[in-house]
Amino acid sequence: MHSTPLKEHSMPQLGEIQRAFARALLDPQEAPVGDDPAGRPDRLRFAVYRNNVAVSLIEALEAGYPAVRRLVGEVFFRACAGRYAAQEPPRSPVMLLYGDRFADFLARFAPLADYPYLADVARIERAWLEAYHAAEAEPLAPTALAHVAAHRVGDLCFTLHPSVRIVRSTYPAVTLWRVNMSKDAPPAIHLDSGAQDALVARPGAEVQVRAVPPGAACFLDVLFHGGTLAEAAAEATSASASFDLTAHIAALLESGLVTAARLRRRRTQLPKRQSICR
């Protein structure tokens, strides 16, 4: 069964075979690698691998973006996902989080130019997936801040739960996402029915997605980047005069989205950051 070493020397190296195989997987114009039992090349045999790779990536995207799939339809989604997969093959064997640039791809995909809200729905789905797989962390008990003196509350910095994601949209993206996740026929949604920012988080077993009031996304962004409550509140109220700070802090704590709090010393304040709110 063993060959002589001489035969081995005339053979292409394993790396060369795999390079040719990989090229042919990605480019259907390339000659297929490998033979049938009679020693002849066979396009259909190689096509099994090409198909396995393409279909598995499309299915991974289908699993991650069910609402977008419903919005554009299965046929269009699969074509579009195939295009994305060819441009952005996975870089990691951990496929759980494949598709991180899919929303940006949709935003730039010319055939979808008339459906600009799709990318925001995709961003909510991406945030959902990241929250689903995010690390666990114990929430801070709401009573843990009871000892903070009233005049120091503004100096508090919060560590948010690792699953917290914020998605901003100028469309009613949360409603669009929600109705397309339901099994029922989706009702008509007016695209000009108002901008919705989404707060996506998984403090416990289930991922929660909710539309947050104007200013809240700003508020969370500042906290997320290490700002104090006072800084976050200033940003939020400049974005929306109706922003209710007290209610928002209470809601954050009660929903388990804060995992740690510390007081920042006033003299070591960070330089004024550029506003991140629109």
Binding site: Q18, F21, A22, Y49, V53, S56, P89, P90, R91, M95
Partner: peptide, 10 residues
């Protein structure tokens, strides 16, 4: 191969 993961058993 290269930076790509093919998600199949080749």
């Amino acid at each position: 191969h290269g930076r790509a993961f093919f998600n199949d058993l080749l």
